[in-house]
């Protein structure tokens, strides 16, 4: 299976990519990471380097792409264009009260993707 992980600044839980990398290492899935930059910013170098490090630590060959522009739109377009089987996202945060929150990037991906989407939640 080909899996595309979308990573951005507000991504939560922080361990999301680590979990996805461990799973890909165990199943033999191809895992590609797209580092997204909400707004007009370009994707942070730090985030790209962190992603490469996380993939390498899990024993994977790092394939990390930096995407500028509307994060959800760019991510879904990449997944559909390159025939990915699944998009995986963090963004499963909680409010001070403990209410489950849906990050706006996650919401936009869920509502626009024809590719199956998995959202990683904090326990």
């Amino acid at each position: 299976m080909r899996v595309l992980y979308g990573l951005w600044d507000a991504d939560r839980p922080r361990r999301g990519l680590e979990l996805a990398a461990e799973r890909a290492a165990a199943t033999g899935d191809d895992l590609v990471v797209a580092v997204l930059a909400p707004g007009d910013r370009s994707p942070g170098e730090g985030l790209v380097a962190d992603a490469r490090e996380t993939l390498t630590a899990a024993g994977l060959e790092p394939d990390v792409r930096a995407l500028s522009g509307d994060p959800a739109g760019r991510l879904v377009a990449l997944a559909e264009r390159e025939g990915f089987d699944r998009i995986v996202l963090g963004g499963g945060g909680r409010s001070p009260m403990g209410k489950v929150e849906i990050d706006p990037v996650v919401q936009a991906v869920l509502m626009s993707s024809s590719v199956t989407v998995t959202v990683i939640r904090e326990p």
Binding site: R94, G98, K99, V100, E101
Partner: peptide, 16 residues
């Protein structure tokens, strides 16, 4: 239940 709360199970309810 709404938006994931209250949690399910006595232990998680007590913690919350």
């Amino acid at each position: 239940r709404a938006q994931g709360i209250p949690p399910v199970g006595e232990e998680r309810i007590r913690e919350w």
